[in-house]
Amino acid sequence: MNALEMSNNGYLLLFHGNEWWKELGREELEQYIPQSNGWLENLMTTGKVKGGQALARSGVIVSGKNGCNVTDGPFAESKEVVGGYLLLNVETFEEAVAIAKTCPQLAFGGKVEVRPLTNECPSQVHLEELTREEQLATA
């Protein structure tokens, strides 16, 4: 699947769960993999997905002033680690949640986080709110 394109709007699904598939036997895997492929294919052919990828189970975290700390994963709590994403091209939050509910990973312990994309940097929005409050207070 292609990478994301620049997006002005839409919803992001983040798939959580760390190597949950390692607990599955052959039969479950043989059941899950075609289900998962079919799910994605259906979303793509109906134009509901703009992009998506799996993330490798490796990586680092950069933190501290000027990025002075670089540590290997695990990331967050390992069961909350993000294993992949899908960018949805749907109009409403309800539709995004409805799609998340059909994710085949759910049956095997996966979690799907549904997040609206925004164009505006939240720090900018917060600053504007503060400015409005100050104007009201002085009015």
Binding site: A3, L12, C103, K111, V112, V114, R115, P116, T118, P122
Partner: peptide, 12 residues
């Protein structure tokens, strides 16, 4: 690509 995310959402 890149976007900020709203500080709201759901987990299924």
């Amino acid at each position: 690509a890149g976007n900020p995310l709203e500080r709201e959402g759901k987990v299924v």
